[in-house]
Design a protein around this nucleic acid. Structure first.
Lengths: 206, 206
DNA sequence: CGTCCGCTTGACTCAGATCAAACTTGGTGG
DNA sequence: CCACCAAGTTTGATCTGAGTCAAGCGGACG
């Protein structure tokens, strides 16, 4: 539930608009743009992984989107004058920059492209609403449960290649609380865990 | 920060796609569609006010969007097979229903319409991200402060025509906690209040 | 071999939820 | 004009559960 609703062709279609010179390489941890910067272009990820993030007044980091190869980045800022989040490279990566105007032109000239962008944005809206609902759940147990249910595939498994810390951030809990909550769910047989996998055993967290 | 980024012409443009017979009247409290229903159409609000809402597992109500005259409703579900929230009338209202296919056709046929829809969706994404950040703030005091700052106009005032209860829901606090927090901010001269207006007096909640 | 980082668990604290009671306000109807 | 009711607001008392601080474990990596 993290990257724009996948139209695999979208990135490719848009990348064609990029001038070859617009390719940029980023080292892990580098910043592509910052909240408040003027919006001049948007981006298509060529390889690697970037995060759109903000920090709350309290300093808590909030990841708004993760973009991988083929994904669009900053499309929501197309009509804004300033970026409203930071974009930082999670790994070494390369991105193609595309100036705003060529994109706007292409959107009017090529309906199928516009349609793909609309579909991607719709997916994002739905995703964000889901996350908002998640954050509205007060109880850590219920919240974790809901998160797991949403993340699980039809086989009721969730792969956890990343540190649980990151899941804690996504769920909106401190790592300690997440560890405890998972431990408690496991103790009661609601889930089972291996180092890189969580499996939901019962439908109801009780 | 509640209705789709306002392109005033959008609703009008789209309404022209509606067949006259598609007009529906709703009494306050009536439901237009429910989470899980098949998506067959989207809507343009003619008059009155509707809310898109969900309920968390804990029963807390979450308002995802408020749509007023001229606003689009359910546009994020254009490409989905089921609605993902309930739409209920806040007041008596009338809406125009427009079937999905005519809209999709119009989007490809009329670039300026597609562009307006994209702009509206971008606005929603930005708005939702802002709200997500708000919910990420743990301290009630900071959260209320941020909410007020975001809601205030350039004159640093916030009109509060609706019951504070609703603000509590928007901020994600219980009414009691919101009342107390506002009282405390007021006591310390950070804000001042009249029955239907809040004014920010200092920039820093401390 | 040592250090860093993620993980785990324990103990404590405190802010916000919850329950409860009183008081304002507006509207309705007798 | 007033009795009455409903809904919102306010304040108090109490409780609980998530945050915080702290300590120990283990694996990865230089």
């Amino acid at each position: 539930m993290d990257s724009p609703a996948g139209n695999p062709g979208l990135g490719v279609m848009i990348r064609r608009l990029a001038t070859p010179s617009a390719k940029r390489e980023l080292q892990a941890g580098a910043t592509l743009f910052r909240q408040g910067d003027d919006v001049r272009e948007m981006f298509v990820v060529g390889s690697g992984k970037l995060r759109l993030q903000r920090h709350t007044v309290e300093g808590v980091r909030l990841t708004l989107q993760t973009a991988r190869a083929g994904d669009l980045l900053a499309e929501a800022s197309l009509f804004a004058s300033n970026y409203h989040c930071d974009a930082v490279a999670d790994e070494d990566c390369s991105v193609n920059a595309i100036a705003r105007q060529p994109i706007l032109d292409a959107l009017t000239a090529r309906p199928e492209l516009a349609r793909a962008v609309i579909a991607a944005l719709c997916g994002q809206v739905i995703d964000l609403r889901t996350r908002l609902e998640l954050r509205g759940i007060r109880s850590a147990r219920q919240r974790v449960w809901q998160y797991l249910s949403l993340s699980a595939g039809p086989d009721r498994r969730i792969a956890t290649p990343e540190p649980l810390k990151h899941m804690a951030e996504a769920v909106g809990l401190t790592p300690e609380t997440l560890y405890r909550t998972l431990a408690s769910l496991q103790r009661e047989g609601v889930i089972s865990r291996t180092p890189d996998m969580i499996r939901i055993m019962r439908r109801d967290p009780t």
